[in-house]
Design a protein around this nucleic acid. Sequence first.
DNA 1: CCTAGAATGATGACATGTCAACGACTTCGC
DNA 2: GCGAAGTCGTTGACATGTCATCATTCTAGG
Lengths: 136, 136
Amino acid sequence: MTTSVRAGTARDLADTGLSEPDYEVLSTLVERPGTTSTLHEQAAKMGWSRSRLSRHSSRMEVRGLIARAPDPADGRGCLLVLTAAGREALRAATPTHLESVRRRFADRLDADDLRDLLRIADKLGDRSEEAAPLDG
Amino acid sequence: MTTSVRAGTARDLADTGLSEPDYEVLSTLVERPGTTSTLHEQAAKMGWSRSRLSRHSSRMEVRGLIARAPDPADGRGCLLVLTAAGREALRAATPTHLESVRRRFADRLDADDLRDLLRIADKLGDRSEEAAPLDG
DNA sequence: CCTAGAATGATGACATGTCAACGACTTCGC
DNA sequence: GCGAAGTCGTTGACATGTCATCATTCTAGG
């Protein structure tokens, strides 16, 4: 079930030239001051391992979506910086992606469905926030 | 949510020496007459691509869990055969795995939860059968 | 100041999966 | 029969992710 929805949104995203991991990185990074973050902070924010983000950053760096810079505050660290190309790619992909998620997920479920889904996810020990605006 | 449950069952399975793909292959193959199947039939039965099954079969063959044999009925094809080691690995892993799935999934949900989950999965366009004995 | 220990990011070795070829073989229509 | 077309399993080239390990660098305690 997850798989079916994810496959669709991933396909839609791919049409804009980004993978889901790409989108996650870009959309998280763009919210940072200076669209910049140390790798470990970014990883923590995303719930990724440093290793995973390091590897994915390398792939995105090759494609020019982000850049690495030495961290002036910590000689061990590095800063991930959103490039103009990365910002542009995100700008181009965002509406498409939101629309894709809406069409493939949100529009298919009513309030009861969402409530049930959150309840079940909770029972299964899910720890993701899922931005649930229903509690309010 | 899927992720959280899967990670747990995968970890439990790993303790028995099998990955989830391993288990899928073995448990499907053991149900075949002669615990044998052509690769493409097995792939179709599992909903995998031939490429994926071919690759995973190679990994499992190295570990002695299955073997390949030429298909006497089709010179292009090959037969996947469960080995004694594969059968033994499956035998050892099965109770653990069923218990793991029960503990991490089935036991946490009541009949209403399952009904809701199936309803939602259906709305999201899920095509998996999920062996739903609730309709009966 | 100086060292022991912790943290950072990179990387080797793998596991898993996709996609687009490809060679080998079968089958279908004639 | 025979050639075109399809199918079978494999594979190269990648993308993604894990885990353990490593060289650097930082930091805390003496």
